[in-house]
């Protein structure tokens, strides 16, 4: 039995990391919810965000946290042509075609990362990634707290965008009934394009935060893709604030798993939970028919 402060530390870093996971999962979730697309290249968007943060720092010296908005914009700009030229032409060809196309993209990106940036494990090196923040017995790296706060702010912002804004209304209407939405005058394909870009931006910004807090490789994407699925299953598809809760729950469970079984089990805990949830309650994220 580890000491109490170790447990407490693990739980708190689980919560904080979970918040960041939730931000990345949100990208996967809104694309799935609105476009009905299983974005198998989601993990690569996340890794692309991490690389963007890394090179922003290396080339321009801009702190990645200061450049988050820029990184989000870059990812959105990358996302737009992907949607326009890879996904739009597949409309009406069934969900598998789009999913497999994103899978093709995912393996292209993965290997492009290796070719361009080598297969090395990277970390965005900032002092706040290592300097701990201490409250009595609790000590977590500063970036965990900063990343958590930024993630929560962004998640709440996306929530407000979807729940309150005029665009959000169009988005929800398009997700519910695309045909009816078009008939009352919503430009559904524009909503889809924007949603895809927003999803890519969420994944990228979350990726930068995770790239500072932890390390990453060109092939890290696959495991984040699955972790994010687990978050969506826990939080409920289409539920933005639920995603935050799902992320935190998963983060804590991963911490507990790492603490009791060993650090290597962190991701395994998430996946086992995911598979268990699927077999017990597939409607967790099967609210709509595929």
């Amino acid at each position: 039995m580890p000491a109490l402060d170790v447990i407490l530390n693990a739980l708190i870093s689980g919560v904080l990391l979970g918040g960041m996971l939730a931000l990345t999962a949100l990208g996967l979730s809104i694309i799935l919810g609105v476009l009905r697309l299983v974005n198998l290249a989601h993990g690569e968007f996340l890794v692309a965000g991490a690389y963007a943060g890394l090179f922003l720092l290396q080339w321009t010296g801009i702190d990645p946290l200061a450049g988050l908005a820029l990184i989000g914009l870059v990812l959105a700009l990358i996302g737009y042509p992907i949607h326009r030229f890879l996904l739009v032409p597949l409309a009406g060809k069934g969900p598998e075609a789009s999913m497999m196309t994103m899978f093709g993209l995912s393996i292209i990106l993965q290997n492009l990362f290796v070719l361009l940036f080598s297969a090395d494990t990277r970390a965005i090196d900032r002092s706040y990634a290592n300097v701990p923040l201490e409250f009595g017995p609790i000590s977590v790296p500063q970036i965990f707290v900063m990343g958590f706060v930024i993630s929560v702010v962004l998640i709440v912002a996306v929530h407000l965008l979807i729940a309150r804004s005029r665009f959000g209304r169009d988005l929800r209407a398009s997700a519910d009934q695309p045909q009816a939405a078009a008939i009352i005058g919503i430009n559904v394909s524009r909503v889809h394009a924007f949603t895809f870009c927003l999803g890519a931006a969420c994944a990228g910004i979350g990726g930068t935060l995770i790239g500072i807090a932890l390390s990453f490789t060109p092939t890290s994407g696959a495991s984040y893709l699955l972790t994010d699925f687990a978050v969506i299953v826990l939080g409920g598809l289409g539920n933005v604030l639920g995603t935050l809760v799902g992320g935190i729950v998963l983060g804590v469970l991963q911490s507990i798993g790492g603490l009791t079984l060993g650090d290597g089990y962190r991701d395994l805990v998430g996946l086992v939970l995911f598979l268990a949830m699927l077999s017990v309650r597939p409607q967790g994220f099967l609210g709509h028919r595929a």
Binding site: L40, P95, E96, M99, L226, L271, L275, L278, P282, A290
Partner: peptide
């Protein structure tokens, strides 16, 4: 079913 089976096998 469908896409979700695919994700399940990946997991």
């Amino acid at each position: 079913r469908g896409l979700y089976f695919t994700v399940g096998t990946l997991a």
